[in-house]
Deep mutational scan, measured.
Amino acid sequence: MAAGGDHGSPDSYRSPLASRYASPEMCFVFSDRYKFRTWRQLWLWLAEAEQTLGLPITDEQIQEMKSNLENIDFKMAAEEEKRLRHDVMAHVHTFGHCCPKAAGIIHLGATSCYVGDNTDLIILRNALDLLLPKLARVISRLADFAKERASLPTLGFTHFQPAQLTTVGKRCCLWIQDLCMDLQNLKRVRDDLRFRGVKGTTGTQASFLQLFEGDDHKVEQLDKMVTEKAGFKRAFIITGQTYTRKVDIEVLSVLASLGASVHKICTDIRLLANLKEMEEPFEKQQIGSSAMPYKRNPMRSERCCSLARHLMTLVMDPLQTASVQWFERTLDDSANRRICLAEAFLTADTILNTLQNISEGLVVYPKVIERRIRQELPFMATENIIMAMVKAGGSRQDCHEKIRVLSQQAASVVKQEGGDNDLIERIQVDAYFSPIHSQLDHLLDPSSFTGRASQQVQRFLEEEVYPLLKPYESVMKVKAELCL
């Protein structure tokens, strides 16, 4: 049975990233139509530049190519590739079939990587351009969430054990800070992308030097003109047959890092959902379990974690691919890159769409948070109580021993009897502590235990987050809708 299948058929496997999760716009960027249309555009740009620099290419040939950029006979191309065992030459023939007058000058002087690699770089750039505003929107939604809850005390956790208090907004800023680093890295790697350009079979530009009869300047002009037509500021000066596969490492490393950030955020949300302090959106008709109707599973956060793990592992592909590119190139890269580049971007696209949807509907339960604080705060307040007693004339050592005994009794009630923490009640009825009984409410005010959390939130948002989001103001209103 021949390899390949009808990918629109229910009898043929289709990647869930495309069929179930990723956005239509990201799927289109990695589609065959987008790819092969870009090949034709690159052939047109090459012909236009070659004509401008004096090669015998007519206006009629150029116009014929322009008129057929979208006229792609995919069936013919597939048949040609089956016959020739070469995808680029299959599309040269297919393009030439609908451009008979231009057929002889299509791909003039070029090698397969002229269309293959340059198209990949265009796709990487455009895919990054799709991700950047999506990530900015996630940051914006979380920034709104953090600002609104900047002063809401909550129990902090280290080692997932109760620690000092923080605020809900401050905790959210930990998430935002990681995503801001990801946004900066995505922008950097996007701006650092260079075009492969017009380089020939081993990167020496020998074929173009021959076409222009040894004119170095025209060869350099050709490279520059096509690079500018493709919208790049610069091209690699040095290439082998391909652009260095280190570029793929750079791009997928940034995406993998984004995956790590999203995994951490969504894990926190899942843990908070278990504590009943916070939940992701839950639709009115949504079913959490087929057997347990009360369940409210954090399905979206779980999906993000599941896909983020996949995204983090994909960076190993370009690392290994770059390491086995012998001399000017081997074909070890080809099949692998067809999979890992598309999957990385479709996965990143999915987790950003999902995280935006989550961040637009996060639900906080202040009463649950308050109750958990009441359970733990008495123990945390013991040092403040000791200091207040010393100020009232008591002995630190005597007070410490009193607190120690009462704390152990209260802990026994919590752990052995399943009761509430009654340390404060014990202190309130103990005559030894009568000098500070009137101060206990103040000493137990949760806001006095959150330090500068709310001020940190305000400063972080104003100095770091809002300036970073400013270039994306025009796209901030787009909502994230999930079908599944």
Rank of each mutant, 00 (worst) to 15 (best):
A3R: 15
Y13D: 02
Y21T: 00
A22C: 15
P24L: 12
E25S: 15
Q41N: 12
L44I: 11
A47H: 03
A47V: 07
E50V: 05
G54Q: 08
T58E: 11
E60N: 12
E64H: 08
N71S: 11
D73L: 05
M76N: 10
A77V: 15
R83G: 14
H86R: 00
H97G: 08
G104Q: 12
G109I: 01
V115K: 00
V115M: 05
N118A: 05
D120I: 09
L121T: 09
I123D: 00
L128G: 07
L130Y: 14
L131T: 12
L135R: 01
S140F: 15
R141V: 15
D144L: 15
K147G: 10
E148G: 10
T158D: 00
L165K: 01
Q177W: 08
L179Y: 05
Q184M: 13
R190Q: 09
R196Y: 09
V198N: 09
A206V: 05
S207N: 02
T227S: 14
A235V: 15
A235T: 13
V247N: 09
V247I: 14
G259E: 03
G259K: 01
H263P: 04
H263M: 08
I265A: 11
D268A: 11
R270V: 02
G288K: 00
G288I: 05
S289Y: 01
S290N: 06
N297L: 06
P298K: 03
C304V: 15
H310C: 07
H310M: 07
L311V: 08
V315T: 09
D317C: 07
L319E: 05
V324M: 10
Q325L: 13
E328M: 03
T347F: 14
A348S: 13
T350C: 11
T350P: 05
N357W: 05
E360S: 09
I373G: 02
R374A: 07
E376L: 06
M380E: 09
A381G: 07
N384Q: 12
M387W: 00
C399E: 07
C399T: 14
H400I: 03
V405F: 14
A411H: 07
K415P: 02
Q416L: 12
N421H: 05
N421Q: 03
D422Q: 07
L423N: 03
I424G: 12
R426Q: 06
Y432L: 06
P435W: 03
Q439C: 13
T450M: 05
R452D: 04
A453W: 03
S454W: 09
Q455I: 05
Q455K: 08
Q456A: 09
V457D: 02
Q458K: 14
R459S: 12
F460M: 06
E464Q: 11
L468R: 08
L469A: 08
S474Y: 13
L484C: 13
